[in-house]
């Protein structure tokens, strides 16, 4: 960058700083920025990419010495980017050292974010499913935006659906969690930055523990357990959505009959023969209403001493 242009850029940055309410005196700002390259001559409020909105985010709070702005503002994250600043020809201007754009190796730009954000959940990032899939932090997060869509419960799922279209499809099924209404967010169950759960990037150490955060009444332990429920809720349920009530994988009695074929009614072949007949009462009580749960509602376990058959 030419000498004159460098000083012009710096003065422009100072001018913008003075125009903002409650700014530091010009000489303090200049002092703080003597080592800073000015990016805002070009990337100002008229830029079609809304870069300056970062000033309203936590990343720009200079009073917090941990923030990139308290360090060297833009270049803390984007790198010194000498070639980008010094280029004379806009049409062939090289990108900044880190532009967090598509086409850039995720691992490299992610290291910038991890410099500060590697505690808590992000401790598990390296080696996690998203990291090994080369997902960049900037794939989900909008650092420059006042409102990061993925951090807002109302819009978070839309970000996740961008890659997880099969989950989007499942959430369109009639029996589902209230994700569309903003009452359940993907991050209520999942830790996308990595987790202790193994498969599924769940918020807790196991799938069942994750479910118990909202469904603690199912935790027990119970006197009469139902083994698949004790072990894994997803043995019977599809939490992203189902065409069956209670988000079951299949409907009763046939779901239950995949594991229970005792003599008499548990092993009976159910079909349209169980529908109501011409007279009343008629019909198979294992099919109509709530099928097996017409008598055996305690499918998650029973603590009643006489409840061994899950009837009480």
């Amino acid at each position: 960058m030419s000498h004159i242009r460098r000083w012009t850029s710096l003065l422009a940055a100072i001018g913008i700083g003075l125009a903002l309410p409650c700014t530091l005196p010009a000489q303090d700002l200049a002092a703080a920025k003597t080592a800073e390259r000015s990016c805002t001559k070009c990337h100002d409020e008229g830029d079609k990419h809304q870069v300056l909105s970062i000033l309203a985010t936590k990343h720009a709070v200079m009073g917090d010495p941990r923030t990139p702005y308290a360090d060297q503002a833009c270049i803390t994250c984007h790198g010194p980017s000498e070639a980008h600043l010094d280029a004379e020809d806009d049409a062939n201007r090289p990108k900044p050292d880190y532009s967090f754009a598509s086409g850039e190796l995720a691992a490299g730009s992610n290291e910038v974010c991890l410099t500060c954000h590697e505690r808590g959940e992000q401790t598990h990032w390296k080696g996690s499913a998203h990291e090994t899939a080369n997902v960049a932090c900037s794939s989900c997060h909008q650092v420059h935006a006042q409102q990061d869509l993925v951090a807002d419960r109302d819009t978070q799922s839309d970000v996740c659906y961008g890659c997880h279209k099969d989950v989007r499809a499942q959430n369109l099924r009639p029996f589902r969690h209230p994700v569309h209404e903003g009452k359940v967010a993907c991050s209520d169950c999942h830790s996308p930055h990595g987790s202790a759960s193994g498969k599924g990037l769940l918020t807790k150490a196991t799938l069942n523990e994750t479910c118990y955060t909202c469904h603690a009444e199912k935790r027990g332990p119970f006197l009469w357990e139902h083994a698949p429920a004790r072990e894994d809720c997803s043995s019977c349920h599809t939490p992203h959505g189902s065409v069956h009530q209670s988000m079951l994988k299949a409907r009763g009695p046939w779901l239950c009959q995949q594991c229970h074929l005792a003599p008499q009614h548990p092993s009976t072949a159910y079909s349209g023969t169980g529908l109501p007949g011409a007279t009343r009462p008629s019909g198979a009580q294992q099919m109509l209403g709530r099928n097996c749960m017409n008598c055996h509602p305690y499918v998650h376990g029973s603590n009643h001493p006489s409840g061994v058959r899950k009837t009480q």
Partner: peptide, 30 residues
Amino acid sequence: PGLVYAQDDFSLGDEPAPEESSEAQLKALT
């Protein structure tokens, strides 16, 4: 689905001259 939002490739296009900058625009952003 690479999900690049505001950090997409910067296409600078025509730089707005400083005198065209809008205080209202800046307020809206910040």
